[in-house]
């Protein structure tokens, strides 16, 4: 394994080890995901069986995923700053390995969240997916975008004082295009329609945010 990859893997493994001890992100993600899931399914019932369901439910699925992710993911860097461990990390790891290690951790959490939420959501609202492959690709690409955008925003807000305000201001322009694209892909997957253009745009979004984040991160991380 290259030394760069080994460093990033060490950051990833450390974050999971810390999470396994504190369970902060897992509990928060789980709580928000299940609460919104139950509310949506109880409120709407088996909406998937109706024609309107295929149009509306993809939005609701991603709202559930976004709420849960927004509650748990932005802690990645804030916790390092608040507990003063960021200094040790700055002095021991290259910034790019910290960024990609944290992004891999956020991605694994997001994918775990999707694996938990998506099947439950489909079952509870009785929504059938005509193109399961496209549905899974949308979840994977959307999950990556959510993790990448959250990691970039988390890195920026960790250095700021007015964190909650800055989180909202920065997240809105980053997340809205992602959600519009991923909802379109999901809706097309449910209806069995092609979504090559939206999927390509989604992948382009993912690559842009990850590359821009990786390039910006050294300047953000080292004051």
């Amino acid at each position: 394994m290259s030394s760069w990859l080994a460093e990033a893997a060490a950051v990833f493994a450390k974050d999971w080890r810390s999470e396994a001890r504190t369970r902060y992100a897992l509990n928060t993600l789980g709580l928000f995901a299940l609460t919104t899931l139950v509310l949506v399914s109880v409120g709407l019932g088996p909406l998937g069986a109706s024609a309107a369901g295929a149009q509306v439910l993809p939005f609701l699925l991603w709202i559930v995923l976004l709420f849960a992710a927004a509650a748990g993911l932005p802690r990645a860097f804030v916790q390092e700053e608040e507990t003063h461990t960021a200094t040790a990390l700055r002095l021991a790891a290259r910034p790019s390995t910290v960024f990609w290690g944290k992004l891999a951790y956020a991605l694994s959490l997001t994918l775990a969240l999707e694996v938990l939420v998506a099947p439950l959501f489909l079952a509870m609202v009785q929504l059938e997916v005509a193109s399961p492959g496209l549905f899974a690709a949308g979840l994977a690409a959307g999950g990556f975008g959510l993790a990448a955008a959250s990691t970039v925003v988390a890195a920026i807000i960790a250095q700021a004082r007015a964190r909650s305000t800055l989180f909202a201001v920065l997240s809105f322009p980053l997340l809205v295009p992602l959600l519009l694209l991923v909802v379109e892909v999901t809706r097309n997957a449910v209806g069995g329609e092609p979504a090559a253009v939206a999927l390509r745009q989604l992948l382009l979004y993912d690559a842009s945010v990850a590359v821009a984040g990786s390039m910006l991160f050294p300047a953000i991380w080292n004051p």
Binding site: A6, E7, A10, V11, A13, K14, R17, S18, R21, T22, T83, H84, T85, T87, A88, R90, L91, A92, A93, R94, T97, N222
Partner: peptide, 29 residues
Amino acid sequence: RLRVGYVAPDLALYEELTAGENLDFFARL
């Protein structure tokens, strides 16, 4: 940053990890 050794009051290690796990992590880095 990567070459120096630094001891300071504002330097903290991961409280949820053991002393050994902390040094193992930084040894990997």
